[in-house]
């Protein structure tokens, strides 16, 4: 049976190879869209499509960071907490310090990048395992966010910031532009720059990366900083959408981000992955949630559905890989 599945998938994969997207995940997405279009009359509409993308934006941006780190055989469990820290830091710039709106952007991005830089230093230089480092940062960043905000939401953002979250230029919500723009740049970086090539090589075989003269330490430092920066951007978008610096923002989002990356074909053990694939993974999760909402299925079932999709996606991938040495 597996051979029957594998042959056409192989052909499709070669066709998609240039775009670095896995056929399996794209097929799952198409199948979901077809099924939900039949089951729900409002599913296949432009406004619902924007709903899905808008709901995907925050986790999607986080998943970009997760993809880079996982491709290098690392992990970043602090993504959700750093999102919360960035949200609070950005909001505090305006609400507490009275600084103009660019400082909200700067504060959120800098907080994210700084947390990521600390992760990177600890992983790359102190050589503490990434799982532990980022698990620690998960607590540290969340605690810091609660301390800064006194455990309360920080309300009231300047209009320029609200534009980033709530405006609809050309009828499209701004976060969708931010998600797509960031994803396209990130895709180019991972698939078409030396930084991206070296990231995949590091995740594939660290000894090989070292032997060919790649500065592994510097690369790791940059990767975790980049991941933190993505969490900062996601925190900014979140803050702008809800008009609040929320210390509890992004709780457990790191798991959703990692799930999106894995569904999209990123190898959990490193060496393989793409941003476009991750976006397909994030869309699959968004479509499942949206579809179950439209079908008025209780929210509890959604978590089960996402979990099932995750396991199924990895299983399909393994069917394809089984024909290989890997």
């Amino acid at each position: 049976m597996t051979a029957v599945i594998r042959a056409p998938l192989g052909a499709l994969n070669r066709a998609l190879g240039r775009a670095h997207v896995r056929a399996e995940s794209l097929l799952v997405l198409v199948a979901l869209v077809v099924v939900l279009s039949i089951l729900s009359p409002v599913f296949l509409s432009l406004s619902n499509f924007f709903n899905i993308l808008l709901a995907t934006a925050t986790v999607g941006i986080l998943a970009i960071g997760a993809t880079f780190v996982i491709c290098a055989a690392g992990i970043d469990l602090s993504l959700g907490s750093v999102l919360g820290l960035s949200s609070v830091t950005g909001a505090a710039m305006s609400a507490y310090l009275g600084l103009p709106w660019p400082f909200v952007i700067l504060g959120a991005l800098a907080a994210g990048a700084a947390a990521g830089f600390v992760n990177g230093l600890t992983v790359a230089v102190a050589r503490v395992p990434a799982f532990i480092v980022t698990l620690g940062m998960m607590g540290i960043a969340r605690g810091l966010a609660l301390i800064i905000s006194g455990g309360q939401g920080i309300y009231g953002m300047p209009p320029e910031i609200l534009f980033l979250g709530q405006a609809r230029p050309f009828g499209v919500p701004t976060p969708i532009f931010i998600l797509i723009g960031t994803a396209l740049i990130a895709h180019w970086v991972l698939a078409h720059t030396r930084f991206g090539h070296h990231t995949l090589a590091l995740g594939d075989n660290e000894a090989a990366a070292r032997a060919t003269g790649i500065d592994v330490r510097r690369l790791r430092l940059m990767l975790y900083t980049l991941s933190g920066l993505m969490a900062g951007l996601a925190g900014l978008v979140f803050t702008a959408r809800v008009n609040t610096g929320d210390p509890t923002a992004g709780l457990t989002y790191e798991l959703l981000a990692i799930t999106a990356a894995i569904i999209g074909g990123t190898n959990l053990f490193g060496g393989r992955g793409s941003i476009l694939g991750t976006m397909v993974g994030a869309l699959i999760m968004g479509v499942v949630q949206n579809g179950l909402n439209l079908l008025a299925v209780q929210a509890y079932w959604q978590q089960m559905a996402i979990g099932t999709v995750l396991v199924a996606a990895v299983w399909l991938d393994q069917i394809r890989q089984r024909g290989r040495v890997l």
Binding site: H197, A207, A209, T212, V325
Partner: peptide, 27 residues
């Protein structure tokens, strides 16, 4: 050439040959 070959198994043959010394151009 090391005994463990220092190859990246999931990257393609061409990329392995140029690993760490990839030529670049302007897009």
């Amino acid at each position: 050439i090391y005994q463990d070959l220092a190859l990246a198994p999931q990257q393609d043959v061409a990329n392995n040959i140029f690993l760490g010394r990839e030529p670049t151009r302007r897009l």
